[in-house]
Design a binder for these strands. Structure first.
Lengths: 125, 125
DNA sequence: TATACTGTCATAGTGTATTATGACACTAAA
DNA sequence: TTTAGTGTCATAATACACTATGACAGTATA
């Protein structure tokens, strides 16, 4: 996997797993890749994956079954949606707004952005 | 200054100075705070500020005058606008779009975002 | 029972961001 | 010329992310 240099690897792994859940690629009750397996896949140390999983366990996203592995917790997707939405709106959006203001980005520059939002509007019809 | 835990301090200092320039608070030819002064202000080590300034000098945003200090380079604002715009559209926007899609954020959630863009549209009239 | 998976813990080593501090050369102003 | 302000370089110490590796206990299956 390609990692961003500016963000800690164990956080990026967490984000990746969370994304899989949000996209419905892994559902509640389903087993996620084992620590060792994902470490090999992502070309990363066991301990680093372990740290990501421990974090997600704290967050209640995944649960451990002794000797078997980690599984997606009940309501993980719903809780993740709530958490991430709040994080995005409260922490990320303000700095995005600031950048758009300072860089004077208009609707032409952000064409894809507007389209994506409109597409989401139409989904609830 | 308050620093984000997930991003290196010397990069955040660079971003702060760049922002001052983009906002027109410091203009071309003007002196920026000395390494030691800014270090005290931000409660950070001299060397950390030095690293930020060295980076900005490489980027052509600021220039050094021996024994005097650092000054905003000519065309710094225009070049910064170009650089940051490109970085935002190519590197940041894609992951923002992805989040908006996955979290299904609509125009109600992103009200302020849309307003900001529209406000920029009107400025070029 | 033996084997091959799971997670978990401990230890040690590497790289790097950040701090702390001292010393030096350059410049402006008293 | 002295003083105080610039940047710059070098060194050492601290903290932490990440790696490498070994060992151990629990679980499922042949």
């Amino acid at each position: 996997m390609e990692f961003n240099e500016t963000k800690n690897i164990f956080l990026q792994i967490r984000d990746w797993v969370a994304d899989q859940i949000l996209q419905g690629k892994i559902v509640s009750g389903e087993k996620i890749p084992s620590v060792r397996e994902l470490a090999v896949d992502m070309e990363v140390n066991r301990n680093t994956v372990m740290r990501s999983y421990a974090l997600m366990e704290e967050e209640g996203i995944i649960e451990n079954k002794r000797g078997i592995g980690f599984f997606v917790a009940a309501d993980a997707k719903r809780n993740l949606l709530k958490m991430q939405k709040q994080t995005f709106l409260n922490n990320e959006l303000p700095s995005i707004l600031h950048q758009i203001e300072v860089l004077k980005l208009n609707s032409e520059d952000l064409q894809t952005l507007i389209q994506t939002i409109q597409s989401n509007d139409h989904e609830n019809k």
